[in-house]
Design a protein around this nucleic acid. Structure first.
Lengths: 407, 407
DNA sequence: ACCTCTTTGTTCAGAACTAAACAAAGAATA
DNA sequence: TATTCTTTGTTTAGTTCTGAACAAAGAGGT
């Protein structure tokens, strides 16, 4: 009895799965190099995973100069994760496979300022989870606009939603009985970019979101920079203009108070471009149809953003800057001011920094949150802490639902 | 024959030595916790190191609630490192013991713009090395104002000294036949702060130097943030003022062009506070003796620095900001503008960030460079790469100068 | 004085991993 | 076509490290 393969180190096992999920099929040799272990060990680990049905051997074999590689791929039934994007007035859910593909999604109204918001959110999430597919659910990732304490206990501070020290993570864990990983939404986006987007090719990059607020996710050597209190990336409150407009944070002249959505709308109304009750869509429409004052508003915003980002680039030296968020819908107008200001504010040796602009949807934010769960196996026990361990456990348990199945 | 203890993993061995050097004596249990290995292994490793004469057991035993700890200390003869600070017009050397104490120091004139600067520097360094003590020399750390390529090969770009792609590291290695680690001087200071200064208590902090230039060293989770090209921390070129004064980088309105030493002196002359041929010392003197215009110049500089640093704090969320450099001699005048500007530009939750001002000497910069060598064993093979391995080797060889000494 | 609790440090079996040799399978080359 | 080279993947032997049990040495209470 007890011929159970004595579960190898879970970290390595799940790192293999996560790697395959994020980067697609790979050979044993590739994996050994990527995860920095010996080929010998990789043979062992993959043998186990194959016999457990988590991996499968693909016939495919490229062959380039030497023995052709036998590619390994994930069994798509190995697991899935749920991602949640929480904002002030609604919640978006996605259910993604272990390979990052969206299986299912939904969006529900939600009032973050209601006194029952925690129970409301739990209920909505519980309903979405209940409608799930057959693959085992590894965990839930939640992206929120605000800062989250380091250990991903899920203690949330959010000025945007009026939350102070809300125990979002622990509450959801208890209620749902699932691993829950809570993270700032821009950081979640940065992780998604690292796994599935432009960031796959870069270890050091900056994700900047423009929209209601201005935020940044900072990726350094492949991991998110959180700072001492989980509050890194609050670039929306970089002081830009002395005695500038009042910001939601109480200060004057923050970046966000000048180029945030509210500020642009206010300018549009003030300069008579749009009506007193029109919003950002109208302003963008005006610019699209050639209104000079409207394009100027966006271009000026681009100018301010360009100068400020140049400063951040000098501070952090990223390989690439990725601009995201609802605001990118009007990027063609922003860029008019952004490009010259950004380039001319950089020191010569840094002037070649790439800038990529992407238009992601609401769903993408939630996908970023799901990526938190799928990415946890990567972080060496540190970041996601307890919840990360739980995700790993579920990923491994999956092979041996009960006790050891005899030979 | 061959009863040689079969040298255990060098990384762990030298990590123990480096840890003891940086933090003073510690018990085996302390070390095991700090270096994240099992107590069992620590027993093994320290047994070897003790028998090799690199460590010694201290009688001292605090005892607090349980069995009293047997402290371990370094044999001060285990090794030493040389630190070099290179600037445009001179070079400073220090010779420090493995515990970070300065044994010997020197300063020599040097012309970074001479065509023979590489040979000159080699010669000066060779002479200083020759005058060394008895402890084995582990390596040489060099701090330069400029950016150094990632692998610490020592390829230097420095606008301040007019160097482009100077192979400083490889040249010195070849000529001196010693491990050489080259690093940006502010980063070196940050490492020194981490080992010996305020940074011992913090994993996330910012070192800001004010003087000729303005620079920053960024410590994240205990390691220096270098960025993609080793150019992180160039905060001197953050754009501050549209159409501001011309900067050495060719742009206008960089932070450095407004509050760098040259800018302050120019203001002082322009406003008639000091003569056309007086320098920063005269300006500081004027402020010290109460000249209102002089104090205003420093205070305005403090104001600009405060606002800009607030932006960096929002971006990185450090626990503490440490201000250093020659400029701190006049800090009492800077702070008049700095404090209110800094605090009022921070979002409420960040307003408590600590600021420490230290006045370090030329020698401290060189000590920071030496710290590079003593700190290498910490970085897990990554940063200092080849040179780090060499330092480790020398630290280990030291116990077995030749082949295995019989029983 | 005696028991319990806490912390340090050691020993030993066994797990996790690596290094090195080798087998497999094709490309490049003569 | 045979030879060499390159890369993948496996096997085996051995090293590094951990976990768990235990001994040592004191503090704190009863």
């Amino acid at each position: 009895m007890a011929n159970r393969p004595q579960a190898r180190t879970d970290v390595n096992r799940s790192a293999i799965l996560a790697r395959l999920g994020a980067h697609g099929p790979a050979s044993r040799a590739d994996l050994a190099r990527a995860l920095n272990v010996s080929p010998a060990l990789m043979t062992q680990l993959t043998k186990d995973l194959l016999s457990e049905g988590l991996l499968r051997e693909l016939e495919h074999s490229p062959s380039q100069g030497g023995r052709p590689a036998r590619m390994l791929g994930l069994m798509s039934t190995a697991g899935r994760a749920i991602g949640v994007k929480v904002v002030a007035d609604h919640v978006a859910f996605v259910d993604v496979g272990i390979d990052g593909t969206v299986v299912r999604s939904a969006s529900e109204p939600f009032d973050a300022s209601a006194s029952t918001f925690l129970a409301d959110l739990t209920g909505l999430l519980r309903r979405f989870v209940a409608g799930g597919g057959s693959a085992p659910l590894l965990g839930v990732g939640v992206g929120v606009p605000g800062s989250v304490d380091r250990q991903a206990n899920g203690l949330v501070d959010s000025t945007q939603m009026g939350w102070r020290q809300v125990p979002l993570g622990s509450t959801l864990q208890r209620e749902l009985n699932l691993p829950v990983i809570v993270e700032n939404n821009v950081n979640a986006l940065a992780i998604a970019e690292r796994l599935y987007g432009v960031g796959r090719l870069h270890e050091n990059f900056l994700v900047v979101t423009i929209g209601t607020g201005i935020g940044a996710g900072i990726m350094v050597d492949g991991v998110v920079l959180r700072g001492s209190g989980g509050g890194a990336g609050e670039v929306g409150h970089i002081p830009v203009e002395v005695d500038g407009p009042l910001c939601t944070c109480g200060n004057h002249g923050c970046l966000e108070s000048i180029i945030g959505e509210a500020a642009l709308v206010r300018l549009g109304r003030g300069r008579g471009v749009i009506g007193e009750h029109s919003g950002i869509a109208a302003l963008r429409g005006a610019a699209d149809s050639g209104n000079a004052e409207a394009t100027r508003i966006f271009s000026e915003a681009g100018h301010v953003l360009g100068r400020t980002l140049a400063g951040i680039v000098h501070t952090l030296d990223p390989e690439i800057v990725i601009v995201l968020g609802e605001g990118t819908a009007a990027w063609s107008h922003w860029s008019f001011g952004f490009e010259p200001a950004f380039r001319s504010s950089l020191i010569p040796s840094r002037r070649g920094v790439a800038v990529a602009v992407e238009t992601w949807q609401d769903e993408s934010w939630a996908q970023g949150a799901a990526a938190l769960v799928l990415a946890t196996p990567f972080d060496a026990e540190d970041m996601a802490g307890d919840q990360g361990r739980l995700v790993r456990e579920r990923l491994v348990e999956q092979a041996f639902p009960q006790a050891g199945a005899g030979a």
